[in-house]
Design a protein around this nucleic acid. Structure first.
Length: 564
RNA sequence: GCGCGGAUAGUCUAGUGGUAGGACAACGGCUUUCCGAGCCGUUAGCCCGGGUUCAAAUCCCGGUCCGCGCACCA
């Protein structure tokens, strides 16, 4: 086990779930410190992707009814049929293997695969025979209600809850594009063999933003803010670019400005929580790598002890999801977009002659007339559809009149740009990029150089001596700091040096020490985790000084007299 | 899922069939006090199930979990 993993376990960042029942792969508990860290990361994410944008956050059920995932495509592309070679035991996704070997599109059902295997006598590359095809269901299924119940799945991504609520959401945003909807929550994938600790989980935390834009206007009002940021891009041809976002869009490396904007914003967010720029890159998906819904997709990848791992996916999902849900639900999920100026067009319209229609069509005449008024006329005859019946009408039944019509706008199905964050991987990457060792007074120390804002314990209060009156005074200060809202710990166990190390290890940025001088002039010292330097400040100033220090990365030396 | 290796206290680890030991950590006490000091004490462990054996942490089988390789990761 790495030094970091050992510390995370021992000090209470991450624990294996179900440990007393011997555990289960793919599940982790967020222990007290890890839980606090992840929550703080989530809150900074909110600042970047909700508060700072035209974005609202919602929370939808973790359980989704079957219809949702049939429409979204997960029920077919997520529940794959697998085949295993009985000789070399390699497992393939059956439809992929058949496509590759036979160039045959095949339905991913067990029966269809079985038939293809028999008819074409398909063998493994090693020459071995395949066993019975079996389902490889990546969604957890369940039933809602008693008895037979209704088929349902635990959501494999948070996004679908947003698409489903689209009508309400577009109304909430007063039908004006662009807008975005965010959701932070759990998602579930029944991975075949999760490995690599928290990198691949069966239950994981996502922060997703669905940003809806006009398909013809993939621009973002704040693009200028990030346009000149320089970053590392690896395109789908594996070519590495070190360029500004503006250039990347201009050269067509990134398909559009919204995508580029969120790539830039994502990078700024990741840097703000302490991920190292030199260990961060954005990699474009190759054409065969993309999900079933995406046209262009960029992953933020971080360099960790597991190599480069995907921590954020930024995809242009186009109108795939909204169109699918529109089709499967029968609801109109488009949005009316007015033109800057109404366009006037000349059209030939049919004016129904009721005195001819009436006698000829009796009770249907009214409906025919209504249908007739809606169609555009091109020739001498016109066809209308009434109650599923097609009726041809000659000029005897209508007159033609040229009219000028104003068209105020059009209905469009928005495209969606989706930055999707894997919070567990991000939290882990932050820990890895923050974990450090240095030497203090000739001794190696472990120190977690978290951004101050992220520290799970923000301040530790330490009486220099573990006896009166130091302890009581220290506990009073703890009470004061807790009331002020700081995550505060009190600790009088062991020598002062030992205690400093304890808090260095978990990334606590500041230690307050109560010493002899405290009782002479009402001051204490603040010790900085990274420099181990100390300044002496008045107890009455402690709250505002800590608040200011924690919100920034300012040097403590500006806040008091240097002590050591 | 397959193959190889592993699992002993909170953590790290010694222990080749016969009394499970240490270090660090934690906790209590004494002492000391501004960078993992010292002394005394306490808590605490053989992954689970089965088998072989008079006797299993140790050998065998199965499972679980962890690591690595292959596969999978829409």
């Amino acid at each position: 086990m790495s030094d970091l993993m050992e510390m995370l376990l021992r000090r209470g960042f991450l624990w294996q779930s179900f440990e007393i029942y011997r555990g289960m792969a793919g599940f982790f508990d967020y222990a007290p410190l890890g839980n606090n860290l992840r929550r703080k990361i989530e809150n900074i994410w909110r600042e970047f992707f909700v508060i700072d944008e035209r974005v609202a956050e919602i929370d939808t059920p973790l359980i989704g009814i079957e219809e949702v995932f049939i429409a979204s495509g997960h029920a077919t592309s997520f529940v794959d049929t697998a085949i295993e070679c009985q000789n070399c035991h390699r497992v393939y996704r059956a439809d992929h293997y058949i496509k590759e070997k036979l160039n045959l599109e095949v339905e991913s059902s067990i029966d269809a695969i079985k038939e293809v295997l028999e008819v074409y006598d398909l063998k493994c590359e090693c020459g071995g025979k395949f066993g019975e095809p079996f389902p490889m269901n990546l969604m957890f299924s369940t039933k809602i209600g008693a008895g037979k119940g209704k088929n349902a799945y635990l959501r494999p991504e948070t996004a679908q809850g947003i698409f489903i609520a689209f009508k309400r959401l577009s109304n909430y945003f007063r039908e004006k594009l662009p807008f975005g909807v965010a959701q932070i929550g759990r998602a579930f994938r029944n991975e075949i063999s999760p490995r690599q600790g928290v990198i691949r989980l069966r239950e994981f935390n996502q922060a997703e933003l669905e940003f809806f834009v006009h398909p013809a206007e993939k621009t973002h009002p704040n693009f200028r803010e990030v346009a000149s940021d320089v970053l590392t891009l690896v395109d789908k041809f594996d070519k590495t670019h070190r360029i500004t976002l503006e250039e990347a869009v201009k050269k067509g490396i990134i398909a559009n400005e919204v995508l580029a904007y969120f790539i830039g914003k994502t990078r700024r967010f990741l840097l703000a929580i302490g991920i190292k720029d030199e260990k961060l890159r954005f990699r474009q998906h190759k054409d065969d790598e993309k999900a079933h819904y995406a046209t262009d997709c960029w992953d933020a990848e971080a360099l960790t002890s597991y190599g480069w791992i995907e921590i954020v996916g930024i995809a242009d999902r186009t109108d795939y999801d909204l169109s699918r849900h529109a089709k499967f639900s029968g609801e109109d999920l488009s949005i009316f977009v007015p033109y800057p100026k109404p366009i006037s067009v000349k059209k030939k319209r049919a004016i129904p002659k009721m005195n001819a229609l009436g006698p000829a069509f009796k009770s249907k005449a009214k409906k025919i007339a209504e249908a007739l008024e809606k169609v555009e006329v091109s020739g001498e005859e016109v066809e209308v559809e009434v109650d599923g019946e097609k009726i041809r009408l000659t000029r005897d039944f209508f007159e033609i009149k040229e009219v000028e019509e104003e068209i105020a706008g059009e209905r469009v199905v928005p495209h969606v740009i989706e930055p999707s964050f894997g919070l567990d991987r991000i939290t882990f990457t932050v820990l890895e990029h923050s974990f450090d060792k240095d030497v203090v007074e000739g001794e190696e120390r472990k120190v977690l150089r978290l951004k101050r804002r992220l520290a799970p314990v923000e301040v530790a209060v330490l009486p220099l001596l573990s006896r009166e009156p130091f302890t009581t005074r220290a506990m009073e200060i703890v009470g004061m700091l807790k009331k002020a809202g700081f995550y505060t710990e009190y600790d009088d166990s062991g020598s002062i040096g030992r205690r400093y190390r304890r808090y260095d290890e978990i990334g606590t940025p500041f230690c307050i020490t109560i010493d002899h001088q405290t009782f002479e002039d009402g001051t204490v010292t603040i010790r900085d985790r990274d420099t181990t330097g100390q300044v002496r400040v008045k107890i009455s100033d402690l709250t505002w000084i800590l608040r200011e220090l924690l919100m920034s990365e300012k040097n403590i030396e500006g806040f008091g007299e240097k002590f050591r």
